[in-house]
Design a protein around this nucleic acid. Structure first.
Lengths: 380, 380
DNA sequence: CTGAAAGCGCTTACAG
DNA sequence: CTGAAAGCGCTTACAG
């Protein structure tokens, strides 16, 4: 039925490109062949098929395919050969059921992952995670929830259903709603991307945001800045809290004026917070933005209000995307290798799944990319 | 036991620091307690446990939980209640094995998904796909390959292992290496995100790039442009070919000078192509970029060469990210609802998996976001 | 070194 | 309306 459709479709499109034409002929031939043995073809090839073809028992096949002792070298070769010839692949569900392992790990996208400001982060993280998964023949199972709270049932399901062997926890919040499920199941492997102080009961891969803060501050104070503002992400995120506290403490210690506004990582939030800063009596001479989208928005907003950048205001962006290096003036920013973090957090999780220890680790340090948006302020 | 932990946790969390310390102590206590009943605790709850607790047979439980006839209303209620009390969740592997369905769909990230230029596209697509998956209780399995060619073994494995019930095909190329595997398995559900003319044997969800081209051209010609350049993505992508052909044809028909340079979607590529354009004898008065990263790079490069934008050159970006609306001048760009495309392509795939027809569909039309980067050229 | 058999947790005809 | 039993495809003690 389907096949007839395809046929018709193909024949009518033959004059489009001879490439298609050829393709279609092969298609047709192939389909013709298929019609015959269809019912039989449908069945997937199992270990029993291989056993029959090789003239051995199922268990011999299993041993051979899993590289275990119990078969003679010759038998093993013969089995491997016929398995390959038949195009056998282990049935995932059967393996999982038998082993009580899914060979999958889970990641839940929370908040709005299509929010421009968080897209690059998640995508890079996923790139790293999948990269490492491929190496170990694991799959990444991706699900989605609107809030940390909404992740709870997904996690419960994962644990009870055995759909994944472990998971990666991102966007940790203070008093995170997910903690209690995880505490109830201390043997479910989990690695968090968060500061250990915020997640004392789980191994974490953490970025050294405190050190990053001190790098930024050192850069700015060396240029002569005495009044600095911080336009941050959402207050309840552990990331935000750590940066906020670190910057505040350091500024106090060094006698630097410090002010901050928490916002939401969006372009609009960045614009609004920047404008709010300008209305304050004492204006800062430098602004640190918690991401690049807000930094760009700030740059544009400042210009519209007659500021020349970097002359009248120095800007630092916390995330370093192409945007920072492409825009003019290029933005000084903190670079963090998120792809690598994805790889490492996956390594840790797989170690945990394999029953090893996975002590918390530090990410590669941030790099401060000094570009054109930070200069010595007027009065200095 | 667990509850006590949580309780304690909450009570102590009144002041920040002691929260951590206390938590650890309880953790330790918890683990200690675990050592005893470990063996029993480890076992997941199965249908047999529920049956025993409810005093019925396994099959009765199965019927009740799956909402099938075969159990009396009272029995059903009792079963559902005890299942819930015990925290039963179906074991995924067992269900998959029995049903020969994984309730998962696959997506392979190819090329370099952490390439700045493709990050937003993939992330939005994934956001849409997972969104729709959640609604239908499906999972998204994500894997990674460096090229279309490298996807082939992954696809073969998926098909033979039953790891996923179907897949979404992206970044289709001319003479795509993946076609032959898919042709060999015509019953494996696949939906492509590509123009039907490039994938005659698969249902597709396609954007109307031809219409989009005509919108852009109409906008530019109405402003008075007579010479237009196109800085495109990689030549072998079906997307690129379609846009290229459409723009070329339309320009010819309307007596507009047309030139194009294929590049790689990167910022560097955009810069280089833009500069190359400037060296040509006849300069265009407007440039269409195939993505926003290149458009921004072009804007900056033009400025560095003394061009005032939009006065000396009109710019159009094909993708509309925050970048386009935030930068100054804001870039005129083509908006495409990729999240929605992700949802719809998933709907199509799930329909196919359920044995329904899934005829090719058109995406929501592009919207031309007219902003400040396109104006009437000097000489007009 | 090899084979017959039980088990993983679910579903589903098939008898009662 | 309900229960006993076989089966999905693999793994793994356990006999030979």
């Amino acid at each position: 039925m389907q096949k007839k459709n395809l046929h018709a479709l193909m024949h009518t499109s033959t004059h489009k490109r001879s490439y298609c034409a050829n393709f279609l002929v092969q298609q047709a031939a192939h389909r013709g062949a298929e019609k015959r043995g269809n019912m039989e073809d449908r069945r997937k090839i199992t270990i029993a098929d291989v056993a029959r073809a090789a003239g051995v028992s199922n268990s011999a096949v299993s041993y051979a395919l899993n590289g275990r002792p119990g078969v003679s070298p010759e038998t093993r070769d013969k089995i491997l050969q016929t398995a390959h010839n038949l195009g056998w692949q282990p049935n995932r569900a059967a393996q999982s059921l038998s082993a009580a392992k899914s060979r999958s790990i889970g990641l839940i996208l929370d908040g709005d992952p299509s929010l421009a400001a968080v897209e690059p982060y998640f995508m890079r993280l996923i790139a790293g995670v999948t990269q490492e998964c491929e190496k170990n023949n694991y799959s990444l199972v991706l699900r989605r929830a609107s809030t940390a709270q909404a992740e709870v049932p997904v996690i419960e399901q994962w644990i009870a259903s055995g759909a994944v062997d472990g998971m990666i926890l991102t966007n940790v919040e203070a008093h995170d709603a997910r903690f209690s499920v995880l505490v109830d199941h201390p043997d479910f492997p989990v690695v968090a991307l968060a500061d250990p102080s915020m997640v004392p009961h789980l191994p974490t891969l953490f970025s050294d945001d405190v050190q990053a803060c001190s790098m930024v501050l050192e850069h700015l104070t060396q240029l002569g800045h005495k009044s600095i503002a911080h336009i941050s992400g959402p207050e309840n995120l552990s990331h935000t809290q750590i940066r906020e506290k670190a910057l505040k403490n350091m500024c106090e210690q060094q006698g630097i004026q410090y002010t901050s506004i928490a916002t939401d990582y969006t372009s609009e939030g960045g614009t609004a917070a920047t404008l709010e800063l300008l209305t304050r009596y004492e204006r800062p001479t430098a602004i640190i933005y918690d991401n690049d989208v807000m930094a760009l928005a700030g740059l544009v907003a400042l210009r519209k209000n007659g500021f020349s950048i970097p002359r009248d205001m120095s800007l630092v962006s916390w995330d370093d995307s192409v945007l920072c290096s492409t825009v003019s003036p290029a933005l000084t920013s903190m670079y963090r290798d998120v792809v690598n973090a994805g790889e490492r957090v996956t390594q840790m999780l797989l170690a945990l799944i394999d029953g090893h220890e996975a002590p918390s680790q530090k990410e590669k340090p941030y790099t401060l990319m000094v570009r054109s948006s930070t200069v010595t302020p007027h009065h200095a």
